[in-house]
Computed example of a mutant assay.
Amino acid sequence: MAIEKVKAYFKQYGMENQIIEMDESSATVELAAQALKCEPKRIAKSLSFNAEGTVLLIVAAGDAKIDNRKYKEEFGTKAKMLGASEVETLIGHAVGGVCPFAVNEGVHVYLDESLKRFVTVFPACGSGNSAIELTIPELEEFSKCLKWVDVCKGWNE
């Protein structure tokens, strides 16, 4: 189970006990915000894409949406999200629990600028009822992101 992989991943940092497992679903931004009693925009959602054979994971704020023009400028190709049936195989986590921790080798993780306005955010932890509260520097460290990108819209209007 993916949450076990994420717990093992955080154990090396002594942070496995900070993972929050809820009785209710946190599989969508709205459900996660309700379960965690926070604003939806503080949910760090992980969006998965196929960029001409390279698997990308873009972690963005809950109120952000991919801007196709910005995405193409950054990655040189049209934004093509992975199908639900591909996500678990290619990323290592099922839809609803996708996160940037303990992902499959070869997955390129990026953090979107929409997250930088928060002190802490809540990414999932491999299951549809888990999360962890991390500071932005912690998210940057533990996600092992390649870099920050600006590929979203809707959050700063």
Rank of each mutant, 00 (worst) to 15 (best):
T28D: 11
V29Y: 03
L31Y: 08
L31Q: 13
L31C: 05
L31M: 12
A32D: 06
A32V: 02
A32R: 03
A32W: 03
A33V: 00
A33Y: 01
A33N: 06
A33H: 06
A33F: 05
Q34K: 15
Q34G: 05
Q34C: 06
A35N: 11
A35W: 05
A35Q: 11
L36W: 02
L36V: 00
L36A: 03
K37D: 15
K37E: 14
K37H: 15
C38L: 10
E39V: 09
P40E: 04
K41N: 15
K41E: 15
K41A: 15
K41F: 13
K41W: 10
R42L: 13
R42M: 15
R42N: 11
R42E: 14
R42G: 08
I43Y: 06
A44R: 04
K45T: 06
K45M: 09
S46F: 03
S46D: 01
S46I: 04
S46M: 01
L47F: 02
L47W: 00
S48L: 03
N50P: 02
N50C: 04
N50R: 04
N50M: 01
E52Y: 01
E52A: 10
E52S: 13
G53C: 07
G53P: 07
T54W: 00
V55G: 11
V55C: 15
L56N: 04
L56M: 02
L57K: 04
L57H: 07
L57F: 02
I58K: 03
I58V: 15
V59L: 11
V59F: 10
A60L: 07
A60C: 07
